[in-house]
Amino acid sequence: MKKTNYWKILITGLLKENPVFVLILGTCPTLAMSNSVTSAVGMGLAATAVLICSNAVISLFRKFIPDAVRIPCYIVVIAGFVTLVEMFIHAYLPELYKSLGVYLALITVNCIILGRAEMFAGKNTVGKSVLDGIGMGIGFTLALLAMATVREVIGAGTFAGIEIPFMIDHKIEFFVKAPGGLMVYGLLIALVNVITKGRAIKKKEFNCAGCPSAGVCNGGCKANEVKEGE
C-alpha cells in the first residue's frame, strides 16, 4: 500500500500534474530556455536539483518554521540553493553557465519551486517531498526537452547541436526566436488538450488564482493543493 503511494507521488509530476503542460507553471524559463536542447536540459536539471534540495530542507524544517514567516524562509532556502547550483555550474560547466545567463538566478522565482514548497514540502515528510521534487523536476525537464526539440529541430535544423540532414537546409528561424516559443507552447498545450480530450488541463484560463505563487502571496489558492494520499 505504502509503496504504490510513493510511486504515485513520483509519477504524478511526470504526467498527470506535469508542471509545464498541465499546471502551467514556470512559464518564463520554459519559454526562454527552450530554444536549444542543451540549455533546456541544463535549465531543467538545475531546477530539478534546486527543487529536490529545497523540498528536502523545507520539509525537514517544516515544524521549526513559524507559519507567519514561512514564505520568506522558503524564499531564503530556495535562493540559497539556487546560488549553490549557480556556483557549481559556473565552476564546472562554464559554457552552460553562459547560455543560461540571468535565468539561472531567476530559478529563485520559478513558480514551480515555491509552489511545491508551499503546497507539498511544507506539509509532507522528507521522503515524500524528495520524491515529489524528483517527479516534478523530471516532469519539468522532459517538458522543456519536448519543447526544445520541436523548436531546435525546426528552427535551427539541429538537435543538441548535431545537424540533422534535410532539416538543416530547411530551417525556419521563427521557431528559435521569441514569438516561436510562444507559438510552440500554445500548440503543444492544445495538443495535450486533444490527447486527453480536455481533461488534463485543469485551468482553462490562466489567472492569479491558478498560480501557486499567487496562492503563496494571498494565502489562498486551495484548489491546487496536493494533499497526502490524494
Partner: peptide, 13 residues
C-alpha cells in the same frame, strides 16, 4: 482544444 490558454499564447506570439 485551443480555447483558453493555447489561443492566448498563439496571440501573444
Amino acid at each position: 482544444h485551443f480555447k483558453g490558454l493555447p489561443a492566448t499564447l498563439v496571440a501573444a506570439s
